[in-house]
Amino acid sequence: MKRVKKSKKRDGSRNDDENDPFIMIPMELKVDILMKLPPRSIARLRFASKHLSSIILGKYFTELYMTRSSSQPRHLVSVQRGSGMQLIHSFSQEEHTSSNSNDHDEVSYTLDPDDNDKVSYTLDPDVRYLFTPPVRGLICGRKGIKMVIGNPSTGQFDVMAWEAVVSEEHQVITLGDKQKWRMIECKYPHRHYAGYHGICRDGVLYYLASYKQKRSLMGFDLSTEEFNVTKLPDDYKLQEFGNLVNHSGKITIASQAYTGAIDLWVQDDVNKEVWSKTASVVPSVADIFGADQRLMFRGILPTGEIIFAPLPSPNPFFFLCYDPKEKKVRQVVVDGIGDDSAAIQVFFDHVESYMVL
């Protein structure tokens, strides 16, 4: 008996990848081409073919892209207007135009309404989301039991309901098709300080919290979903005014009692409760802009510059970068982000991501 081979279907259908000319290009060149594209384009190419998707979602390309983005952090500005329009805009930390004004350098940015970097997102006019610092390119805003998670680089935002719990219990949500809040256990009963932002480093989310009636450093491992606590120095200024910042890749707590020097407590080893203290003396606001201007400490750039932003937000908006080594002040002016009534948030460590929510 002869073995009869099954005939293939001749319905004209073919695998999409067979028509993809990208397959014939050497892998090294494919990666080089993708790395030159903006994140929004990469996110769309995920759905162009299985071949492209396998490259873009692969561990090698993902880590390569994130490494490059992390070495080129951007400023991220959120503008909330009373009409319910939320504008998200990121721009490079490199200088565009500069001049010398009042004995300090001035860098000006003008945000073009037609710039592709700007993302317009219409929110509920009755809800003013307060955003937390970006983590691996994503930002999260919360107001009451409502929460929005978005990727400013792709323009994708997702609003979800948050199951508010007024207690020391904790909830997490994993982004994906089946998004649902779930409770997790914590061996260290604590309360997060409202209004204080955390930072993410090496897969661990760090934030300040009250633990055993002391200000402590909490860490939440994003992969194992386990908590750990680190004791902080028993220093009055740190316990009363300490604010967590990422300083040259190290966990740092900065504290300033109204005016005067800023104390920087640096943890050299995340596995040890050993902190080193330095003090940075900054010039008074009156010396730069006069006594009428009020500035608040906002963080430290990878360059070591200390950031201050005015309160309330002026028009045009600006912030100051003070270099403690060179004793120089740099003013960064951002035009085109709103009027005098706009509520503005600015973050200084945003990295671009092509992640699809």
Rank of each mutant, 00 (worst) to 15 (best):
Y354A: 13
S216H: 03
Q239N: 12
Y258R: 11
E28T: 00
D323P: 07
E28N: 12
E28W: 01
V135W: 01
R201C: 06
V282Y: 08
K2E: 14
A48E: 02
F47W: 09
P324M: 06
N116R: 11
D124L: 09
I42A: 04
G155P: 03
R128F: 14
I56W: 02
S108L: 07
V4W: 08
S41A: 10
P73C: 10
K5Q: 13
K327I: 09
G58C: 08
Q293K: 13
Y196R: 13
V204W: 06
K6R: 15
M85G: 01
S90G: 08
P113F: 10
L29C: 10
R14V: 12
E305D: 14
I344L: 12
W162Q: 01
P302G: 01
F289C: 03
R215I: 03
E169T: 11
K30G: 03
V334C: 05
Q331H: 00
K180L: 10
E63T: 15
V79F: 04
L244E: 05
R136E: 15
I33M: 14
D234W: 05
Y354P: 04
R128H: 10
P312F: 01
Y211P: 00
F227I: 07
E226G: 02
L29G: 03
E352V: 01
Y322L: 01
G260K: 11
M27S: 12
P316Y: 06
E273S: 15
R68P: 00
G176T: 10
H190A: 07
